[in-house]
Design a protein around this nucleic acid. Structure first.
Lengths: 152, 152
DNA sequence: TGAAATTACTTAGCCGGCTAAGTAAAAGGG
DNA sequence: CCCTTTTACTTAGCCGGCTAAGTAATTTCA
């Protein structure tokens, strides 16, 4: 008998969302591995990216830009501070807040991180030609834009 | 003066990988919110999906299918077992292993989860027309296939 | 056959996420 | 002016991931 059902795949696995999750996980894994070489954990580079773009952000603003909840930022900043990449200073305008500044070491990571993201990108998209890459980028950007009027 | 630099975006943010991460996070958020309504945490449904397809998997096989490390499976299964969705029985063929079986409740979640993934998919891809959705699905599948000869 | 190597899983502990609940400062409003 | 509400952040604790280090059973092989 032909085992007709044996290669069947669950309906959820045939969704675009599922493929998205898998590809994202792979990409995250790539970035994570490379990031470990410069002493970062995946996700922490996002904080740095915001600060490279605009140093001295308030904690809450950072959470908002990252699209993440405040407690997440609290913990990440504590670790980044312990690693000496970031500095938290009181906000002179509001005693409840603080401002986050890069240290020299934090600033020094920008180029390595940019390069490593490029390498991860290349690794992830290795199976696509230039036109396909453009199209994938366009579609993801469009989806992102369509995901409500959310920031970041 | 025109504030020419003010809308500049960091190079990393212009990568496809970055858009991928954002879209994936939004999708995960959608699924997670819906999953909470049926008492699941995002990620746990992946275990169930494997079991719906093939009940009685070994722990290690499950980890492999999920593309996840064994300790992750250990903890997830403990929680799923505590929730009464899954049952772990000793493997008669190998005393180091165990087999994972769905309970009736675990089996009952299949349709709700499938429907909720469909809703999340719709929500995520709302900004794309049918052709674009097909193309995005095709490209993600291709990327996934290109990501080494990895399983799952 | 019996010691060594391999395999299968668990434990401990860290990280990025989250929610819920707390604290403390700032803003409003009578 | 003081009391209430809102805001900004922290703490506690859970979850899905990971790695490193363990334990116990199976395999291998001399």
């Amino acid at each position: 008998m032909t085992e007709k059902g044996i290669e069947e795949v669950h309906p959820v696995k045939r969704t675009t969302g599922f493929a998205l999750a898998k590809v994202c996980k792979a990409h995250r894994g790539s970035v994570g591995g490379m990031l470990a070489e410069v002493g970062l954990h995946v996700g922490q580079e996002m904080v740095l990216i915001e600060l490279w773009h605009c140093d001295g952000l308030r904690g809450g603003k950072l959470a908002c830009r990252l699209g993440v909840e405040p407690p997440t930022v609290t913990k990440m900043l504590r670790r980044l501070e312990d690693s000496g990449l970031v500095e938290r200073r009181p906000d002179p305008a509001d005693a409840r807040s603080f401002l986050v500044y890069l240290t020299e070491e934090g600033r020094a990571l920008e180029n390595p991180v940019v390069r490593l993201w490029e390498r991860a990108e290349e690794k992830t998209l290795a199976g696509l030609d230039a036109a396909e890459r453009r199209e994938l980028g366009r579609l993801l950007t469009k989806v992102r834009a369509g995901l409500g009027a959310e920031r970041n």
